[in-house]
Design a protein around this nucleic acid. Structure first.
Lengths: 194, 194
DNA sequence: TGTTTTTTGTGATCTATGTCACATCTCAGG
DNA sequence: CCTGAGATGTGACATAGATCACAAAAAACA
């Protein structure tokens, strides 16, 4: 929970990796965002509710999850600083949320409405490019995960995840990691105790 | 293998669902594409090779697949007319292909190079918007599939797939459907014979 | 039209994971 | 400094689905 940089700088650094905006352009872009703080455990998007915004994580960890009829939870994404999260299906299609988003730790996020995103995308070609890039990146990551799920067993998936995001090990409870890997809590526990 | 519409009309119809282009703009857009024909079984992208293009399917069926070290195949996508296919990771990052694309049936595709896509995206804001939309759609579909894979058993996944794309049933061999669902050929066979 | 390949079905195992049932353990809050 | 809820470990057992091994249609093709 310690990040000395200002939210604005963090977003700027993130966007600048892909497109260059003048100070005025970035100010305009940034003006559409609202900074919000949430506490550990707090819900940002609730399954079944209307979805109006997407969220850029400044600080803390979020999770994007789905709970099925058997009250079993599956995690689609752990969102860490500089990641984006929302129910993009609901957001783009005006549908009710099928996935929820909430806070694993206290968190600070920049909140952008769907309408505002579309507006700045229209106003600034560069911003549109940025969002195209961002979505593409998400798509590629999602495909990779699909492959890993079909191809690898639980242990390998676990090792991959830990290799890529070691920070998760002592930040999020194991049963959430299990829900991300698509295995039961018990199986995950057995993985690293043998 | 019978599609009376001209490739150009098909692409135009597809793009127009999302953005509106003048005739001149669309002509310019279309001029970057090359029409290619492939025969059943022919490879379009080979694992390990360089990837320069993405493909818009006019006619026929493609598959996007991954073959692991045990020579086991997993199918990421069946691409049907008006769908796009490529190894987007390789394409965007200049990496070697980790997934292959080939033809399940004879096929006609419109081929667009990465460089040309970026060029027209820069030239025409509307085209950039179109590609943002397209990728977003792919992302959402991919997330949905991830969820289905974690949540549902083989039978349910099979039924979902058949409900959504009944055409697959008598177009692609069952072992490919199995490779898409992430189950063995034998298990799939048992699913609808019991 | 006869002969290879592909594709598909089915039985007999084997195995990774899920499920259920408790026992700890660890903290956050009172 | 308690105390109760959430987090974790572990045994026993159940099971979906994988694998292996053939057999036999069906399709490709020469």
């Amino acid at each position: 929970m310690n990040n000395s940089m200002h939210p604005k700088e963090i977003l700027r650094g993130h966007v600048t990796q892909i497109v260059s905006l003048t100070d005025e352009q970035f100010d305009h872009f940034f003006s559409r965002f609202t900074l919000k703080s949430y506490k550990k455990g707090q819900a940002i998007i609730t399954q079944g509710a209307k979805v109006e915004h997407e969220y850029f994580v400044i600080d803390g960890y979020l999770k994007t999850f789905y709970i099925n009829d058997d009250v079993k939870m599956f995690i689609l994404q752990f969102a860490m600083p500089t990641w984006w999260a929302s129910d993009y299906n609901a957001l783009y299609n005006g549908a009710k949320a099928t996935v929820g988003v909430d806070c694993i730790t206290d968190a600070q996020v920049l909140c952008l409405s769907n309408a505002d995103r579309e507006k700045i995308c229209s106003e600034l070609h560069e911003v549109e490019r940025f969002f195209r890039w961002r979505t593409n990146r998400g798509y590629v990551a999602s495909q990779k995960r699909l492959l890993s799920l079909m191809n690898n067993d639980a242990r390998l998936r676990y090792e991959e995840l830990m290799a890529q995001y070691p920070a998760l090990y002592n930040t999020v409870p194991k049963h959430l990691i299990a829900a991300y890997l698509g295995v039961s809590r018990e199986t995950l526990s057995r993985l690293y105790h043998t």
